[in-house]
Amino acid sequence: MNRAALLLLADGRFPAGGHAHSGGAEAAVTAGRITGPGTLEDFCRGRVHTTGLVAAALAAAAAAGADPLALDEAADARTPSPALRQTARRLGRQMMRAARTAWPSPGLDALATARPRGAHQPVVLGVTARSAGLTPPDAAHAAAYEAVTGPATAAVRLLSLDPFAVTAVLARLAPDLDEVAARAADAAHRCLTEGTGALPAASAPLLDVYAEAHAGRPVRLFAS
């Protein structure tokens, strides 16, 4: 049990650069598909059960001690959008910097050396969790939580939504996060014996469309 380290890792103030990204929410707002708390909730539920589940499973598998380079390759195969691969690696590099200062470990050093331009962020998150003495389910929870808090925080800024209403959205999503984290941890466990093919590959076609459309836009508030 190392609860305080989990709170620190999952805190939006942890200096890993996530605040500059909306997780596709800005593009969905631009497309007129997130307009208020109701559609934000639908967006976040779809995101956490697809790319959120994949991120949570990658993080849990890395925390369980699976080969981070094999996980990084599995993350590439699960991320067809080059804009999202680039974002994931940029965020991975930023998290690596913060993590090596907070919880230095040979595992983090080895991954930083093997992927100097950044590994996929969920993989770095998982190796960080391991360095901090956290469990695979902890890492899965942190990744699933991040999959919805990023878009929710961004939507508050983009649409001037009532922060109380958005917090209520996140509270309603809590059972989904627990379910996703449990599935992710289970898959991570199987990944240790069956390889990365056992990890979920849930995809969200519109998130890929949004990511490339957003990357091509000259004026935007969030990087992704």
Binding site: A28, F43, G46, H49, D176, L206
Partner: peptide
């Protein structure tokens, strides 16, 4: 891809 009854979030604006 997972759609239909019992799949979560698929009819939302992310999927």
């Amino acid at each position: 891809l997972s759609f239909g009854p019992g799949a979560a979030g698929w009819a939302g604006p992310a999927v």
